[in-house]
Nucleic acid binder design. Sequence first.
DNA 1: TTTACTGTACCGTCTGGACGGTAAAGTCAA
DNA 2: TTGACTTTACCGTCCAGACGGTACAGTAAA
Lengths: 178, 178
Amino acid sequence: MARGESSREKILTAASELAMSDGAAHLSLDSVAARAGVSKGGLLYNFPNKAALMRALVERFLDEFRAELDEKADRLQGNDFAARYMDQVVRTLDEKSPPSSGLLAALAEDPCLLAPVKTFNRELLDRMLQETPDPGAVLTLFLVLEGMRAQQVFGTAILGEEERRLVLDKIASMIGAA
Amino acid sequence: MARGESSREKILTAASELAMSDGAAHLSLDSVAARAGVSKGGLLYNFPNKAALMRALVERFLDEFRAELDEKADRLQGNDFAARYMDQVVRTLDEKSPPSSGLLAALAEDPCLLAPVKTFNRELLDRMLQETPDPGAVLTLFLVLEGMRAQQVFGTAILGEEERRLVLDKIASMIGAA
DNA sequence: TTTACTGTACCGTCTGGACGGTAAAGTCAA
DNA sequence: TTGACTTTACCGTCCAGACGGTACAGTAAA
């Protein structure tokens, strides 16, 4: 059971990493299984077909994001939602192999698979917009973070450490000083 | 000759569109050729192999972007570079089949293919940073636009017309009132 | 006995790419 | 201006290999 959970996770992580390094177009079940240290039969035991794997990649991304956002809500009650969201996205950016890159594989396989991400983002944005007196600041915050995530997923990140801090400070003060 | 140019363009456009609709992982030379109204042999005459096609996709994106940016420079001399850049990106967002989606195909084929985009973006950003007294504003502008483009390429665009205008006005005033 | 796999063998389809052909346009000496 | 030749811009076919997926026998732990 514990092994089963771990196997699923290893497969999902392997798929994300391979999509990132070799290109999503070359993501084959064989290569994922090999990378995950699992046989192809084992992979297909956990995910009956490739589409299921891709769907799981998107779900894991969303689930993890949601879970960590909720967890943050318990710890820091004073913070508003936008600040928590920002904190969360920035944290995922620093990870070596972010679950976000799984989205890339899913997108390449079938663009429709990102529909859940779209609705999730819209709900998130609406929630932030309800709380704020400055919608422009929230929209800016949202798009800046999307831009950062995109640059990471595309492998075209160009901002230096101090530049990133500068932007983040700027938008933090924008939503802080409403 | 004039037909030859057009054939190349048709193929490039077909590839971008297919990457967008069917997923970059399913982009085959056959499907691109069919969509472009060209035989597979004809495709391979214009692009000796798949990698060359993908490289051309990236180059076209960069070339078009550069050309239209330069052209803008001639028409509106008073404008500063950041404003022109913003104008340019926003314009490409409205097109039905944006060349940006070719980047998606290239990324899926081989992440390294986006390296030219990375250096191009860095040069662009540096140029904007040199001109401005407010680096934070320029960085915000840059990332917001990257976020918008990413949402379009990912097919997860969620902003309404008035929301988009709100953000753009906000960042325009940020770089305007330096 | 069930669960969670591994390993192997295999099938049909798709894919990149090589290759040979060809029709039309252009070049150029006689 | 005509015939010989070259170049350009493709077309259509073929093939080896990769791919997704199936089937199934075996195994080790709980």
